[in-house]
Write a protein that binds this DNA or RNA. Structure first.
Length: 820
RNA sequence: GCCGGAGUGGCGGAAUGGCAGACGCGACGGACUCAAAAUCCGUUACCUUUCGAGGUGUGAGGGUUCAAGUCCCUCCUCCGGUACCA
């Protein structure tokens, strides 16, 4: 009998499986296909921590089980290799970002292999390789050709620390997603994708997805569809004639209560409407607010909103009243029309502003027909319209329809749906990304470069500057080119695409990673996609996951795909918290690596602990003692099976044989259902229970030798996906297969349903809901029999004290409850 | 504020409306050992106990039910997201 030596097993089996092609994508036409995908990792210099294992180990377990229960499995891995950290490292050291990336990807791969995450490495892809990014560029042009890519010099978010522009998704809350620093607004010409055009479909098609509810909710909030109306107020200016001022409102029912209008400081017509008298003050205000970040504005206005009267008055088209026009930075430039009608009686923000600047408050909504009074606070609820001309008496709900129609009929407004989501800012003034395949020609404008790939040239330095120029701009022989349309001198676009462009289609590439005629082979894509199971952290709810859905829909519209949603089912693993109760990060110095754990406890114990530590989605604190626990489990398995490699038949014990068959069937059923249902923790617990049972009954092995041996075999088989090394070793040691075979290609065992049927069951006897006794009865005892037995029990008799029970509830197989 | 989720032993966590605390960690006791580690066996929600058992208990308070961790209502706390979106 040998001692458990995980190092030896790992060294022995890894190469054998590799040679056998265990993880190669299946292509048996008789089998169903299963595509399991992990989020596209960015290979960072820090390498993988045990936190990442919570992603890669469960998907590996699922895939192993899927192969065993008869699926062709596609489980690929690749690298989201373009991006800032490699570039920053390159800036610091001068090493080419491609070299930095190569080193990091190799390390990731090595680590994944340490804990035997089984990927089909023949399908490995790298988004920074020209063979890949030529297709990213191809999709840029697809969007361009379909009118979904455009250039604009709007204000956008800019992170001064990262020196990079950010999309709205990347700067949610005014915070840079990467460095958590505050972002500022900057006006630079940039490329955008028209994701807003797909807002309705992105919202509506969420409903059918098997995704976590919170992710769907985040996307719904982010898209933020609201139904309202646009109404044109009009302003007679001193020197610019009549200016039309459209405002967007979801509460047109309150329009008779509009007592002023407010324009965002960035509103394009602000200068034209401002009177000579107010010009200086308004200009000062604009300057002051543009100096603030959005976050600073928000913080400042929590102490009190600020604003300036423009001197102008706007006419309310419903009642002809003239109301003062103000500018204030509580009105956002990027939403609606950047102008609002302010109804202080029925909007908290307008109320606060009106109070501060002593503007009138007119109450026009009476919830339940009763005016609430609006001096102290705004009445936000719907109600019956009062003081509202011909609309008085209508409900808020009705009037919203009627008044929008009225506005439309009279040509001063219309019903309007608005969205919170903004177009996707995709260009970056960075070196390490996919070049945008556009040539700027003075005559022809922005012309697509169809000769792909536009290869990233080697440059002297990678440093971006504050001017918003990409390092590529310095590479003159690359920048200067000729226009593909007219042949005259032209310049290449020097920005590259944000990394999220690369990850918006990678899941398609895995179906045919070496295909060179198109981004993907349609037949292969139809065979494997949509992705059956997509697993990663929750942090990409409104970034990657929304972009990838958008691109998929565009490709569908272009006739390239026959599905509109890329990921049928999505799961988010929980975060792993370090021993210091903080997120693991290199900067905090609290990272625990799989490397050190594999050295200490072996891959099998690590794998088991990762899936056993708690529910898959839950945030859990790392515990090395916990890992020591699963290490003890594999050691106990090793020792017990070493002792019982060759069980000889002894005197048959029917009772024990049945018990063993029952426990085995129960275990197989539980493990099967738990792996399928992502309840790995309870599945492992069931296997621990079974091992405990075998261990406690090891002395009886000979009395049920056939079943015992089957139990050993099936137990190893259901444990194999979680603990591949020890199970294959023991499987061979116990002679369940020869040298040419491996446990990992065995059929997943089925449990025997009849073995789950018990002869006798334990019944709980309750009196008024409290447990007073337990009895063991034949499993098929009828209600009447159970009642009779229960009532005859001495304990029950003494509780009843001679009187007849009022009521007896009998649940066969479970309990009898006697109400005295 | 709004949206989503969660509150169960010392800890991570189990429980189709039907025996709360599976499994694991930790702790305690014992065996083995010169000793320690490892391993094995046992105990481990709380209170009371005549050691038979009795009572209490799943964030708080109500309710439905023969029966509630689980269903309903009100509230509290925590986590995640979002935040002047008119």
């Amino acid at each position: 009998m040998s001692t458990y030596n995980f190092k030896q097993l790992e060294k022995k089996w890894s190469p054998i499986w590799e040679k056998a092609g265990l993880y190669k994508t299946g292509d048996d036409p008789a089998k169903n296909n299963f595509y399991c995908l992990d989020y596209f990792p960015y290979p960072s210099g820090a390498g993988l921590s045990v936190g990442h294992c919570r992603n890669y180990i469960p998907t590996d377990v699922i895939c192993r089980k899927k192969r065993m229960d008869g699926h062709n499995v596609l489980h690929p891995m690749g690298w989201d290799a373009f991006g800032q950290p490699a570039e920053e490292y390159a800036i610091k050291t001068g090493m080419h970002p491609a070299e930095v990336t190569r080193i990091n990807t190799e390390n990731y791969k090595r680590q994944m292999q340490l804990f035997e995450a089984g990927y089909d490495w023949d399908r490995e892809i790298n988004s920074s390789h020209p063979d890949y990014y030529r297709w990213t560029q191809y999709f840029f042009l697809l969007l361009f050709d379909r009118g979904l890519a455009y250039q604009s010099d709007n204000f956008q978010m800019y992170c001064p620390d990262c020196k990079i522009v950010l999309s709205n998704e990347e700067s949610a809350g005014g915070i840079c997603w990467r460095c958590s620093g505050e972002v500022v607004k900057k006006r630079l010409p940039q490329w955008y994708f028209r994701i807003t055009e797909y807002a309705d479909r992105l919202l509506d098609e969420l409903d059918g997805l098997d995704w976590p509810e919170n992710i769907k909710a985040m996307q719904r909030n982010w898209i933020g569809r609201s139904h309202g109306a646009e109404v044109n107020f009009s302003i007679e200016t001193e020197s610019n004639g009549t200016i039309n001022l459209p405002v967007y409102t979801t509460r047109i029912d309150t329009i008779y209560g509009a007592t002023f209008c407010v324009l965002a400081p960035e509103h394009p017509d602000l200068a034209s409407i401002t009177t000579e008298e107010m010009k200086k003050e308004v200009d000062d205000y604009i300057r002051a607010s543009s100096a603030k970040t959005d976050l600073q504005r928000l913080v400042a206005s929590e102490k009190g909103k600020t604003g300036i009267f423009t001197g102008a008055y706007a006419k309310n088209p419903f009642n002809g009243e003239e109301v003062p026009v103000w500018t204030a930075d509580y009105v956002l430039a990027g939403y609606g029309t950047a102008a609002i009608m302010a109804v202080p009686a029925h909007d908290e923000r307008d109320h606060a502003f009106a109070k501060k600047y002593s503007l009138p408050i007119v109450e026009v909504i009476a919830p339940g027909g009763v005016a609430q009074g609006v001096d102290e606070e705004a009445t936000v609820a719907d109600g019956e319209l009062i003081n509202s001309g011909e609309f008085t008496g209508l409900s808020s709900d009705e009037s919203r329809k009627v008044m929008a129609a009225f506005a439309e009929k009279n040509n001063f407004g219309k019903a309007e749906t608005r969205y919170r989501i903004r177009d996707w800012l995709v260009s970056r003034q960075r070196y390490w990304g996919a070049p945008i395949p556009i040539i700027h020609c003075e005559k022809c404008g922005a012309v697509p470069e169809r000769n792909l790939p536009v290869v990233l040239p080697d440059v002297e330095g990678y440093e971006p500057d504050d001017s918003g120029r990409s390092p590529l701009a310095a590479c003159e022989e690359w920048v200067n080119t000729t226009c593909p349309e007219c042949g005259s001198d032209a310049k290449r676009e020097t920005s590259t695409m944000a990394g999220f462009a690369c990850s918006s289609w990678y899941f398609l590439r895995f179906a045919s990673p070496h295909y060179s005629d198109a981004p993907f082979d349609r037949e292969e894509v139809n065979k494997w996609l949509p992705v059956d199971l997509y697993v990663g952290g929750a942090e990409h709810a409104v970034m990657h996951l929304i972009y990838a859905r958008f691109w998929t829909k565009v490709m569908y519209d272009a006739g390239m795909l026959n599905f509109t949603e890329p990921f049928s089912s999505l799961k988010n693993q929980g975060m792993l918290i370090s021993y210091d109760h903080q997120k693991m990060s290199k900067s905090k110095g609290n990272v625990i690596t799989p490397d050190e754990m594999v050295v200490k406890y072996g891959a099998d114990a690590l794998r088991l602990y990762i899936i056993f530590m708690g529910p898959f989605e839950a945030e859990i604190e790392w515990s090395e003692e916990g890992l020591a626990g699963t290490y003890r489990f594999v050691k106990r398995l090793w020792n017990l099976f070493q002792e019982t490699t060759d069980v000889q038949a002894g005197e048959f014990d029917e009772t024990f044989d049945r018990e063993l068959r029952y426990e085995l069937a129960r275990t197989i059923k539980k493990v099967t259902e738990d792996i399928d249902g992502f309840q790995f923790n309870t599945g492992v617990a069931a296997m621990m229970e079974f091992l405990n049972f075998l261990s406690a009954n090891r002395g009886k092995a000979a009395s049920a030798s056939t079943t015992w041996r089957k139990a050993q075999k099936d137990f190893l088989t259901v444990l194999a996906p979680a603990a591949p090394f020890i199970t294959d070793e023991l499987w061979h040691l116990l002679n369940f297969g020869d040298e040419t075979e491996t446990i990992h290609t065995q059929k997943w065992p089925l449990w025997i349903e009849e073995d789950l049927v018990k002869d006798t069951v334990d019944i709980v006897i309750q009196i008024k809901g409290k447990i007073r006794d337990r009895i063991s009865v034949p499993a098929d005892s009828s209600k009447e029999e159970l009642e009779e037995i229960a009532l005859s029990l001495a304990k029950v008799q003494s509780y009843l004290n001679g009187s007849a029970p009022k009521r007896v509830i009998v649940v066969p197989g479970r309990l009898v409850n006697i109400i005295g």
